[in-house]
Design a protein around this nucleic acid. Structure first.
Length: 357
DNA sequence: AAGTCGGGGAT
DNA sequence: ATCCCAGACTT
């Protein structure tokens, strides 16, 4: 493999002066701690991750503790981070490490990549950051840095361009100080070579950067052609008892909000009343639709209309599978979809408002 | 190779 | 409103 070029020398010198070295997962960087941080940081920015990471590590200080905890509670600690498959994979891998590796993470790239939720770049990051192995990462930050440095004229999603990026990334990887270098190139992308308004005057790679030489850093990375997102609609049925408990239903393990708890749902407004008549034994109830809210996924917009139902006949029966009465005053440790959290907060305010009247 | 999976921050 | 972020998995 190629040896070092000036790229890593300059980058390491910059990191020594300006890099971040105090992040929680950089302190005592065990494979477990680094692994959890890397999974949380997938598609999620550092500032968002920090409070989640603190809570998670306090509750699950070891891989053993994570492995023996029910998935529902793990999802609870993940609520709001999104990409919930990450949490399911995290739980599964904790059990794999405990059962097949005696609680100790494997030390080869091949074994690491075989674990659920750990791909090529994340496997390399864990080994480099926690053990100083010479492994090459290629995450979103590194892709942006390299697209500019080499002035690549196609989107990083293009297969040939992606292969070229891996090749460049490997050629730039030094033979020593792998933990520092790996952190450094991610830091450069996160703090200097940012998506918009990069701080080129502070960049240690400026002299060799082709995008900078062209005076056109804004042109890189080349964006991939975007699609128009379709709009879907749905209706959340919010049934509330007099004491405040709200009916929730657990979603299937796969698909949107997999395994999370949400309100019972109807695809069409015409289905709402039949659903109520079929599933709830209510003699006397009041129905009222609330203001719609839009939730955007990668591949579509979801317009949600809440349908509020209140009844004086309490308690209501729970005739459905995978349902529970969620008590906002004593919230159980379960995972909630983000729009559900939003609506529950609104509901709490409305309830207080009505009590004041 | 393309589609799927969330939520939030920046612009 | 649009883009995109410390990606991986499924089909």
């Amino acid at each position: 493999m190629m040896s070092t070029d000036s790229f890593s020398v300059r980058l390491l010198a910059w990191f020594e002066k300006h890099g971040r070295k105090e992040l929680a997962w950089q302190i005592n960087p065990t494979p477990y701690r680094v692994w959890v941080s890397e999974i949380m940081l997938q598609q999620t920015q550092v500032a968002t991750v920090i409070p989640y990471y603190e809570r998670f590590m306090q509750r699950f200080p070891t891989v053993q503790e994570l492995a023996i905890t029910p998935l529902d509670e793990v999802l609870h600690y993940w609520t709001g981070l999104g990409y919930y498959a990450r949490a399911r994979h995290l739980h599964k891998t904790a059990q794999t490490v405990c059962n097949q590796y005696n609680g100790v993470f494997p030390t080869t790239l091949l074994e690491m990549e075989a674990l659920a939720g750990i791909g090529r770049s994340t496997a390399a990051a864990i080994l480099a950051l926690s053990q100083g192995q010479r492994q090459t990462i290629l995450d979103g930050n590194v892709k942006r840095v390299l697209c500019r440095y080499h002035a690549l004229t196609k989107p990083p999603t293009d297969p040939q361009t992606l292969a070229q990026l891996w090749l460049f990334a490997e050629q730039h990887t030094p033979d020593t100080q792998l933990a520092a270098y790996t952190q450094a190139i991610m830091d450069l992308g996160a703090t200097v070579c940012t998506r918009s308004k990069p701080q080129c005057t502070l960049c240690p790679l400026q002299a060799d950067c082709l995008a900078y030489q062209q005076g056109n850093t804004a042109a890189y990375p080349v964006p991939k052609p975007s699609k128009i997102l379709p709009v879907k609609t749905t209706f959340f049925i919010i049934v509330q008892q007099a004491m405040g408990q709200v009916l929730l239903q657990q979603r299937p393990a796969v698909g949107i909000w997999g395994g999370l708890w949400s309100f019972p749902e109807c695809a069409s407004f015409n289905d709402v009343v039949p659903w109520i008549e079929t599933n709830l034994q209510l003699s006397d109830y009041h129905i009222e639709n609330g203001l719609s809210l839009r939730h955007t996924f990668t591949h579509f917009h979801l317009d949600i209309t809440p349908i509020y139902i209140q009844s004086k006949s309490t308690p209501l029966a729970i005739p459905l599978l995978h349902t529970c009465w969620y008590d906002p005053h004593h919230p159980p440790a379960i995972g909630l979809a983000a729009p559900v959290v939003k609506l529950l907060k609104q509901l709490a305010k409305l309830t207080v408002g009505e009590m004041l009247l």
